[in-house]
């Protein structure tokens, strides 16, 4: 996994609540057996005027000029600012894969759906929860000034807008540790293989049918 320590990036505002994973990456693109290449189809139904399907030359498709990520001022954004319950719906990890592949490294919202939130950390994508009021203030700042940038300092758990006070955010210690060091979670768990085996032995005595 890629490390995440500090990020200074352009912010794109997606002013919608309850953005679901079907919107983030529509199902026809889940047929890939790879983890990469989903970026051109991120928010496909909003970004393009025609219907997308796998294997298309996306550069030839008609763009929805009104969609925020198509506006020239937000090109190159690496931080997505959005509204409550982002990532609701399915468990597809293709959603964080698509956001990463597009170029996002962090998402700021008042709340996230559980499975999506969890999936982000497995890929070095940082979901940050800020209060509704703080998110609202950031929306005003980002929309109000072209080129508005935010710095994210994971070590100190701070969102630092180019104007205004730094905002603190919460994150689990374990997840922070993994992100800061780009750690492979499976490798870490394998270090505890003996503990897992001992657990299995105990369980097999109590509930032998589980292991048949």
């Amino acid at each position: 996994m890629e490390k995440f320590v500090r990020l200074d990036g352009l912010v794109a505002p997606l002013d919608r609540a309850n953005v679901d994973t079907d919107q983030i990456i529509p199902k026809q693109f889940l047929k890939s057996i790879k983890r990469t290449g989903f970026g051109p189809n991120l928010f496909d139904e909003w970004r393009y005027l025609d219907e997308g399907f796998p294997g298309q030359d996306n550069s030839q498709r008609p763009l929805n000029d009104d969609f925020v990520l198509n506006l020239p001022r937000y090109q190159g954004a690496s931080i997505l600012l959005t509204r409550r319950n982002f990532g609701c719906g399915s468990s597809r990890e293709h959603a964080p894969w698509a956001l990463m592949d597009f170029g996002f490294r962090a998402i700021i919202a008042p709340s996230f759906a559980d499975i999506f939130y969890n999936n982000c950390f497995k890929n070095g994508l940082l979901p940050i929860v800020l209060s509704e009021d703080n998110v609202e203030a950031l929306f005003k700042a980002v929309v109000g000034k072209e080129g508005f940038r935010i710095t994210i300092d994971l070590e100190n758990q701070q969102v630092i807008p180019e104007e205004g006070e730094p905002l603190a955010f919460e994150i689990d210690e374990f997840r922070k540790h993994c992100l800061l060091n780009g750690l492979d979670e499976i490798g870490l768990t394998m270090n505890e293989a003996d503990t897992i085996r001992a657990y299995e032995q105990r369980r097999a005595e109590q509930e032998p049918w589980i292991f048949q």
Partner: peptide
């Protein structure tokens, strides 16, 4: 439900 990274984690470590 879990994501694909977790599917791999469960396969590898239960």
């Amino acid at each position: 439900g879990i994501g694909t990274s977790e599917v791999e984690h469960v396969l590898a470590t239960q």
